[in-house]
Design a binder for these strands. Structure first.
Lengths: 137, 137
DNA sequence: AAAAACAATGCAACAGAAGTGCATTGTTAT
DNA sequence: ATAACAATGCACTTCTGTTGCATTGTTTTT
């Protein structure tokens, strides 16, 4: 029991009611969420608090940012063993043009990418757009 | 001569002074530009006009949008023979974390990406971040 | 246990990007 | 020439992301 609390402790962040709520919200969702999604889910809470909570989660490698091309940043929980390292934890994201939802395809690691001489790759972001399994059936 | 005018004609858009200027501006640049880059270059012109010009170019497949993760949309000219089709015209983009510039690596087509059963891929966006050839030397 | 130190929260405000409605100017077609 | 339509300019709005500051809450030190 108290697993989230213990997890927060390993990440060296304080356990607060707000953080637990937001963490559980993200864990329940199977899709990446925007800041305004979180705002709608927690209307009593202040926007800034939600914003800073997500930023803290991001710094501590609890969530990762996703830029799916919709113009709004989305967030999703990292995998348990994630260290946010290149070549290890980079998976691709799928954005559905119909339901507008973005999911992490954590099993699909990003293929090796070649860059020209003189360029140094540090991070890779791969977003596939199309129709998701729910919408195509 | 008058090649840009002819090109616009093939795309079925009217030739105006503003459009010629913006097209030449994009052609001169070797990097993707934001709307505010264009605003700075054409201070006498109205923001809305620049905005709508770029939107028109985008619809007519003259420029393509790039989402490099900086949060601001960038634009770059399509290749001459571009039809904005998947598997043909998709190239990768490189964003330099030092100079903050984004370039099209048109010679580097995106590797084949597998998606799970039920998912239909229509478009692929691949952005590599790191240090560009100018900044690494 | 009280006080000091620090982290989290809430409020207000701001900046920038993106977008819309409408009037006006300019261009094309009848 | 004029009617029809497209392009431009102006004003304004919305949304996202962000910061400063005061206040509340939680540790840590004495």
């Amino acid at each position: 029991m108290n697993t989230i609390e213990q997890f927060f402790a390993t990440k060296n962040i304080r356990v607060t009611a707000m953080r637990l709520l937001i963490y559980r919200f993200l864990a329940d969702k199977q899709v990446a969420v925007t800041l305004s999604d979180i705002e709608k889910a927690f209307e009593k809470a202040d926007r800034t608090t939600l914003y800073r909570t997500i930023k803290t989660f991001e710094e501590k490698c609890i969530v990762h940012q996703i830029d799916d091309g919709t113009g709004v940043t989305k967030y999703a929980l990292c995998e348990g063993d994630c260290n946010c390292e290149i070549n290890n934890d980079l998976h691709l994201h799928f954005h559905c043009n119909l339901c507008n939802e973005t999911v992490c395809l954590t099993d699909h690691k990003i293929p090796q990418v070649k860059v020209p001489k003189g360029f140094v790759a540090e991070d890779v972001n791969l977003v596939v757009k199309g129709v998701c399994n729910k919408c195509s059936s």
